[in-house]
Design a protein around this nucleic acid. Structure first.
Lengths: 94, 94
DNA sequence: ACACATCATCGTCCATCTACGATTAACGAT
DNA sequence: ATCGTTAATCGTAGATGGACGATGATGTGT
């Protein structure tokens, strides 16, 4: 009767968690819209301190939804299409 | 350049937040699978205390994803198809 | 009225989130 | 080598989440 720990439920929860904050939703949409974006631009677009944005980026990175490429002193972020597709599928299949 | 507070980002974040926990994902799937379910059954299916499950149900209810109908001393929960569809659309449109 | 069952709420504890300023690390340019 | 830029990390503070047991509220049945 008891449900077992469900890996898919956890995967979905983790991905959903990544977008469970307005700032992170905006970051993801920003990256989708622009295809790629430097960290500084993202900071400029949000009413948050640089360190706070960096934390949100870290959360998104850990979820796999986005990835960052170091480009000299800058970091260029873009969405990970596979993870995004995975999120869409898991939600869509609910 | 600054993004304005985005109502849709907040709506998405709120709905995503509702399913940003494995137990809540399992509850939602349970309700989808059974179409409707008493609170007690849900408690029996999860390895959590009754009060904890009740809290998760409250969160899901506040998000709009599920709704509960009082049926005597029991409460029958079911998914709110509209909210679920809304979540799917918001995620799908990302 | 009373006992029982069902579920919500309260109080508590610990962990994590969110936000910030300050600092550090890494790189380019002069 | 040093300075300025960029971004991550550290440290901190306050708020919230998640878990539980205990209690309260509501309704059913005897």
């Amino acid at each position: 009767m008891k449900l077992k720990p469900d890996p898919i439920a956890e995967e979905l929860a983790d991905l959903a968690w990544a977008v469970a904050h307005p700032a992170r939703v905006q970051i993801v949409r920003l990256l989708i819209g622009r295809d790629a974006c430097m960290c500084g631009e993202i900071v400029d677009c949000l009413p948050l301190a640089q360190s706070t944005v960096s934390q949100h980026l870290k959360i998104l990175k850990e979820s796999g939804l986005i990835q960052g490429e170091v480009d000299g002193p800058k970091v260029c972020y873009c969405v990970n299409e596979q993870s995004l597709a995975r999120l869409k599928k898991l939600i869509g299949d609910l």
